[in-house]
Design a protein around this nucleic acid. Structure first.
Lengths: 145, 145
DNA sequence: GTTACCCCCGTAGTCAGCTACGGAATCAAG
DNA sequence: CTTGATTCCGTAGCTGACTACGGGGGTAAC
């Protein structure tokens, strides 16, 4: 039950990972993906490993890690640095949660304003605009970093 | 109960908003902050209003809005058409809600990983790292962008 | 074996969002 | 009135994450 480890060209790899060839080469330059040896005057071939690495990068990026941070995670790859990896994850988690809270406050504010606007239709003054004038202050005063 | 509206120089404004002078000027060029009239061959003075504007921009930026999007939000404050304002507000509301949902998915994924990491302490393999490897399939397979 | 596509590699451009530079004018302290 | 900090303004540079270009060479389908 082992997957075929058939090597592929950079184009095939890019297609398999659903990213651009140039992006892969950029990751190589950044040291996030290792460039395989070039067979005598020929074309490089990539193993399944490279595809997994690209998945790793894509997922970590989705989680909000920067390429530099991903580089940091890759160093921890041998699995023996769980503490450090967890710390990185916890930091990301904290900032994500802060963003969610702030967005929820904005959501409530916008929702209220839009709602008032609909009720008040036909009036000369736009409640949304007038409320925004000083109204946003009560929704996010000092919680702003 | 009205605050003193003492005007300040751009330097004082920058200090008050805790951002750089150059950044303010950049926002002016982008049309996010209006540049006050320059008194006869002299120095511009900024009102409290400008400071509030900068707070607004900073908050919205931290929440992940681009400067262009912030420009859109600011039209709500300067505009005179209720319909347009409401429409913009509704669009923003929709995108804010999408952002919240995305961040909540990210939060769940990170939270589970960090949790597994803590439970698994002492193991040879780090669950966070291995999950990144496997592409986080079990958390949110096809909803990843 | 020719043709069309793909790879290699370096360099350069893009986009967002700043950040810095530099020289002239202006203001504030002493 | 001098000195030293600010302001003004235009333009240029930087970071992060790509994306494109171009010329030369390999590969594979017919």
């Amino acid at each position: 039950m082992s997957k075929k480890n058939r090597p592929m060209t950079i184009g095939a790899l890019a297609k398999a990972a659903n990213i651009g060839v140039e992006t892969i080469r950029y990751y190589q330059r950044r040291g996030l993906v290792t460039e395989p040896e070039k067979p005598f005057g020929s074309i490089r071939h990539y193993e399944e490993q490279a595809l997994e690495r690209l998945h790793f990068i894509r997922t970590a990026k989705w989680l909000g890690f920067s390429l530099d941070e991903i580089g940091g995670l890759l160093i921890l790859q041998d699995g023996t640095h769980c503490d450090e990896a967890r710390t990185l994850g916890e930091q990301k988690l904290t900032s994500v949660r802060q963003k969610i809270l702030s967005l929820q406050r904005i959501e409530r504010a916008l929702d209220e304003l839009v709602h008032e606007c609909r009720v008040q239709q036909g009036s000369v003054y736009c409640p949304l605009i007038t409320s925004l004038h000083d109204g946003l202050e009560k929704f996010s005063p000092e919680e702003r970093p």
